[in-house]
């Protein structure tokens, strides 16, 4: 192994910058929504006692994408937090989707296929999980 002054290809760096920005944007957006929802949640429930020793599972509206979106649109605190969580969960998916496009654009067929396989498996598990 040698100390190298090897410069990375500029397209490579271009991908790195966009992936970094994409993740940062997703995370910031998700955190902002959770922060808003969380503030409403604490105003409403801050003085109550937390109940987490037994497992009841979440109510059905907080377990599906459509239910979460509906709750968030009517500005219910728990729905808003859950929407932010959904956005956070979407960041790795968006990242893999972008890489599929970026490798395709670079005509790096091998890596485009790999990223696509990861994306397909990821979407399959996500949708399969929701329909489980």
């Amino acid at each position: 192994m040698k100390i190298a002054v090897l410069q990375k290809g500029s397209t490579e760096q271009w991908i790195e910058q966009i992936v970094g920005n994409l993740l940062r944007l997703g995370v910031m957006l998700a955190a902002t929504i959770v922060l808003i929802g969380g503030s409403l949640y604490l105003v409403r429930y801050g003085a109550t006692l937390p109940q987490y020793s037994g497992f009841q599972g979440e109510p059905s509206d907080l377990r599906s994408i459509s239910g979460i979106v509906a709750d968030a649109l009517s500005l219910r605190s728990r729905g808003l937090i859950q929407l932010g969580v959904l956005l956070l969960m979407a960041t790795p998916v968006a990242r893999v989707a972008f890489l599929t496009l970026a490798f395709t654009h670079q005509r790096d067929r091998l890596y485009a296929v790999m990223a696509f396989v990861v994306l397909a498996l990821l979407v399959y598990s996500l949708i399969g999980g929701l329909a489980f």
């Binding site: 009841q56 599972g57 979440e58 109510p59 599906s64 999980g129 929701l130 489980f132």
Partner: peptide, 8 residues
Amino acid sequence: AGVYLHLG
């Protein structure tokens, strides 16, 4: 994430 969300 899908399974976890679905199971509550």
